Amino acid sequence: MTTTVSITHCWTKRRPEPARALAWLRAALLCLLLGWALPAPAQVPGDVVQMQLERSEEGLLLSASLNFELPELVEDALRKGIPMYFTTEAEVLRERWYWSDKTVAQAHRYLRLSYQPLTRRWRLQVASAPFTNAGLGVALAQHFDDYDEALAAMQRIGRWKIAEPSELDSGVGHVVQLRFRVDMSQLPRPLQIGALGPRSGWNLLVARSQRLPAEHPAP
């Protein structure tokens, strides 16, 4: 595996109307190439095989190992040169015995996976903001020679900060909900329409909840 790390700003440039129309036409043609007239397979399952929560001076850190395979339609789109987007979400809820749990923190990681046919390499970008938002956040880019290596990198989460120290009550328990999914909202509009209509073959959701016990000061 050859890994190259670079920092790039996530931004988009508004295209002139003719160029935008041409991009929409290309996306629509790609919809036809993906064979959406065929019945879509069921949602691809996945699970979180390991999840660890760590309190530190920095805040609450989450590490996890995911186990999933990309849906066939998603992998097919990637190999046709269409970048695919994914979102990892973490929600921290404060336990309340007298009412429903209260959300005290939320964190998101955005991933963009693409295949470069000319070099036959895979590129994985990870950012703190959606890639469709101009000028927001930075993206960490890694390059892989093999699809399986790129997929394995997507399945690892290491010491991800999901809450500030001030957002956690040391004397109360919390519940952390972790979700990983395909993010259709960042695809070109024609692809969104086709995938979010009667199609379920794009769906991928990996989720797990874990309790963080209350932390009591030592006597």
Rank of each mutant, 00 (worst) to 15 (best):
A127S: 14
K80G: 00
R189C: 05
P219L: 00
G135W: 12
S114H: 03
G135E: 06
R94H: 01
G173T: 03
G135T: 02
L196R: 12
V206Q: 06
S65M: 07
A21G: 05
R179S: 13
Q177N: 11
A28F: 08
G158Y: 10
G59L: 08
G201C: 01
E57R: 14
Q43V: 04
L29T: 11
E215N: 14
P117N: 06
M84N: 15
W99G: 04
R211E: 15
Q186A: 11
S166D: 15
R26K: 04
S56A: 12
M51P: 06
V49L: 03
Y115N: 07
E167I: 00
W202E: 07
R96Y: 05
E89M: 11
E167C: 03
I157K: 06
F131Q: 15
D101V: 02
R179Q: 13
W11Q: 10
E17I: 02
E72L: 02
V176K: 00
Q155L: 01
I7V: 10
V126G: 08
Y98R: 09
R120N: 12
E89F: 07
L70H: 06
K13N: 11
L34A: 07
Q186E: 13
M1F: 01
K80N: 08
A28P: 03
R208K: 13
W36R: 11
Q50W: 13
R123W: 00
P71G: 13
P188M: 00
N67R: 15
L33E: 10
Q43P: 04
V92A: 02
A141H: 03
L124D: 12
A37E: 09
N133C: 10
T3N: 15
A77L: 03
P130D: 08
G35E: 10
I7S: 14
P41M: 07
V74M: 03
L53Q: 07
R112M: 12
A37S: 08
Q52D: 14
V182I: 12
G201W: 01
L53D: 05
E167R: 11
E58H: 12
H174T: 12
S170V: 00
A37M: 08
F144R: 02
R179V: 13
L53V: 00
L78T: 03
V92Q: 04
A127E: 06
V172L: 07
M1V: 08
H143W: 05
R156Q: 14
R159G: 01
G171F: 06
R79F: 12
G59W: 09
